[in-house]
Nucleic acid binder design. Structure first.
Lengths: 191, 191
DNA sequence: GTCTATAGGGTGATAGAC
DNA sequence: GTCTATCACCCTATAGAC
């Protein structure tokens, strides 16, 4: 394995881990080099533009891909069932998916236009996939888009508040109850 | 530690602004001192424990207070009306309220248990106030709590995705449509 | 490609004069 | 309370040997 792995990729992986864990500013190039097991100088050979180029590389490979979560729910037979399945799968996601998204929020102000556009493209693809999935229950494309946006706001809002900010440790409201209420409501709103 | 001098408050204000704007790590003590118009040494006289104590002071005065938003909606005559009013007021909030919350998410991992508890207390007060406000439409305290949690997830999710991550600039879904859909749905779910 | 060595500057923090 | 002067350390980045 050591022979076949690309050093550049190793560096990006290490940087990604440290950036997400401690933040870009709190992570030094030295720290990254230590984790990879090379010197700083070697690192600057691979990334001529230094730390910022490293950030760029990390951003483009750290945008979480969640399309598969939508796919897994496409067998649902009712809108209510779809929302429940989707919500439960999203909440059950590997916690480091959320860590990555938290980090995106954190670094967003320092991203370039291109980097932001990359994130937007990926997120819109996700949201559109949801819209397509729910359109068969609604029949109307515009309504489906609004529905998809509503569902994503809900799910990410829960993630940020209850998981990132650890509200779950002090609130007795359970995610299942929120999901049930939302699913029932949104289904009822379309009848 | 006698009373709070005026200077001390000036320092906290300057630090708060810089921390929220650029992040804790990217802000130097020197920078803060420059903005206030004193030297670093003077700053260390007021905050014996240095930069970390400064962060502590900033955290405790930066947790956004949103209770008044709930109060302003308490005249609503139906649940649907309440949600619409509340959602619109939240979206219309001064953008720097959201900046502060974004910053809380950013710095959360480095907060102490006490600092997190302070945030949790304040947020739960907010959420409970919503629960009390909607209880008259539901009659059931548990259902009101779930409803309050759902509404906050929705509103903060919109804030993070569409405002912090600027999804509004690339999505054609408008906040009003999301709010309307949610309000209609949640009202319908209780009938 | 990777190393050693080092430049050049910023950082948090302190001592002691006023 | 505020200053000047200074510390020891860490940072990003580069030059040149191997």
């Amino acid at each position: 394995m050591p022979e076949r792995t690309n050093r550049r990729d190793n560096i990006v992986d290490a940087a990604a881990h440290l950036f997400v864990q401690n933040g870009y500013d709190a992570t030094s190039v030295r720290q990254i080099a230590d984790v990879v097991g090379v010197t700083e100088a070697a690192l600057y050979y691979h990334f001529k533009d230094g730390k910022r180029e490293l950030l760029e590389a990390v951003i483009s490979c750290q945008i979480p891909d969640l399309l598969h979560v939508v796919e897994e729910c496409e067998g649902a037979e009712t809108l209510q069932d779809f929302i429940v399945q989707f919500g439960q799968r999203m909440v059950a996601l590997n916690p480091n998916r959320l860590e990555k998204l938290r980090w995106m929020v954190m670094e967003f102000p320092r991203m370039t236009g291109d980097e932001r556009a990359m994130f937007h493209r990926k997120h819109l693809a996700f949201q559109n996939r949801i819209a397509v999935a729910v359109e068969r229950f609604l029949g109307d494309a515009t309504a489906a888009k609004t529905m998809a946006a509503t569902i994503t706001c809900m799910v990410f809002g829960y993630g940020f508040l209850f998981l990132c900010l650890d509200l779950q440790s002090v609130s007795d409201v359970k995610s299942d109850n929120i999901i049930q209420l939302l699913a029932q409501g949104l289904a009822a709103a379309t009848r």
